[in-house]
Structure formats: C-alpha cells, structure tokens
C-alpha cells in the first residue's frame, strides 16, 4: 500500500537578507495510511515548516514530497489548491474559522468548493456536527463559540469531506487541558472510524501521548522517529 506522505531529501532554506536559514535539511520520511503521527521539537526545529510543505502551502528548496503518490513540485498553484481541496484537511491552532460563516457553513465550506449538492452537504455537516458534539450550535458564528468549540468545528471541517490526510498545527495550543483531552479523543475517533491519516505538529505532551508515532525534529533534522503501539 502506498504511503500517504513520502518526503525524499526535503530541505527548506529561507533567505533572510544575506543570511540563509536552514529550516529543514534532508528530511526523508514516510507516513503510511491511517497513521496518527506527531512532529515534535523545540521552537524553530522545523515542524511547522514540514507540515506546511506537506500541505503544499509552501515549496521545498530541494527534494520531493508526494501526497497519495502525487509529486507536489509538479503542480501549479491551482492544482495545489485542488489537491488540498480533495485530499488534505487542515486544523490550525487559532484563527481557524471563517468569521462571517456560521459553524455549519464553515463545515460546509470545503464541500461547497468541491461542488457537493446543497442537500447532501447539509446532511453531512449536520451528521458531523452531532459527531463532534456541537449539536445546537450549528448556527452560531465563530465569535459566539468557545475556543474548544471552534477547534471542534475546525476538525469537523477538516474531515467532513473525507480527505486522506489531516494536518494539524498545534491544535491544542489555545485550549485548556480538559478541552484538549476531549479534542484529542475526538481526533483518535476520527482516525479509527474514518481511516484518516493525521500528522500533528505540537509542543503539547498530551498530543504526543495520544500519538502512535513520535517524530522529533531538531535544527531542521529528524533526530528521533519512534512508533508506539
């Protein structure tokens, strides 16, 4: 079975005036389907950069990244957007939702871009709203939801169109421990029930404890890659 993500010799160098900053150096990594992997490491270790490269939000300086067998460097901006639309879900640590849309509309947003008929997407959205425990809050806008509720909406949006990969950048950073625990349980549920591959970047020990694979980065290199069953 082909891995969901394959990184081969990936490097990312940021040019800051005359100084070249090596954010990632020669990363080789495979994330198989249904994995629940966590990128950890200190600030500046390159975990968010790697997540952004895998999501096609940025391009590596060297090397190749394949998602579901598709080499990202062969795609233009429009095709990358299509790939993200069809195959990748994102959860960010904050400012995650579109403020002018209600919770249900946020969840339907990706499906609407995909051209899913109105009835079907509303049914799916309501189903996932129940699944993430937001029943009754579907017509609230993000400003009317707590941080935990907002992250649940973001998770629901990320998985409602059944992508093969969800990338979550510090998903628990703004949550209290109880809400973070509940969110991680929800993500584990999504991973097992919906067969979605998850990759996190985090500092949070709670997230690491939930992960089945721990990938540690330091100064842009993978220094440890441990699988825990």
């Amino acid at each position: 079975m082909e891995p969901t993500v394959v990184c081969s010799g990936v490097s990312k160098i940021y040019q800051q005036e005359a100084v070249a900053v090596h954010a990632l150096t020669d990363i080789d990594l495979e994330i198989p389907k249904k994995d629940f992997a966590c990128l950890s490491g200190p600030s500046g270790s390159g975990k968010s950069t790697l997540l952004n490269l895998i999501g096609g939000l940025d391009a590596p300086t060297r090397g190749e990244i394949r998602v579901d067998g598709i080499a990202l460097n062969t795609l233009d901006k429009g095709a990358l957007a299509q790939l993200r639309l069809r195959r990748i879900g994102f959860v960010f640590q904050a400012y995650n939702l579109i403020p002018v849309l209600t919770a249900r509309e946020n969840i339907e947003f990706v499906m609407q871009l995909q051209g899913v008929p109105a009835k079907e997407r509303t049914d799916k959205a309501m189903e996932i709203i129940q699944e993430v425990g937001l029943d009754g809050l579907e017509n609230r806008r993000p400003g009317e939801l707590s941080g935990g509720q907002q992250q649940r909406v973001a998770v629901a949006r990320a998985i409602v169109s059944e992508p093969s990969l969800v990338l979550a950048d510090e998903p628990t950073a703004n949550l209290d421990s109880k809400t973070a625990q509940a969110l991680m349980e929800l993500l584990v549920h999504m991973n097992t029930e919906h067969n979605v591959t998850f990759i996190f970047s985090t500092h949070d020990k709670l997230v690491m404890d939930f992960s089945r694979r721990l990938i540690k980065l330091h100064d842009g290199r993978i220094v440890e890659d441990v699988r825990r069953e």
């Binding site: 999501g55 939000l57 901006k77 429009g78 957007a81 299509q82 790939l83 993200r84 639309l85 069809r86 990748i88 994102f90 960010f92 400012y95 995650n96 579109i98 403020p99 947003f109 990706v110 871009l113 995909q114 949006r157």
Partner: peptide, 16 residues
C-alpha cells in the same frame, strides 16, 4: 490576509 491564506489552505483557488 490571514483569511485569504486560510481560504487557500482549504483549497480555494486564487481565481475564486
């Protein structure tokens, strides 16, 4: 600006 980044991350093409 951040919202436009989010739109793109979610798969909204630049033309939209």
């Amino acid at each position: 600006i951040r919202e436009f980044g989010l739109f793109q991350a979610l798969g909204m093409p630049p033309r939209l």
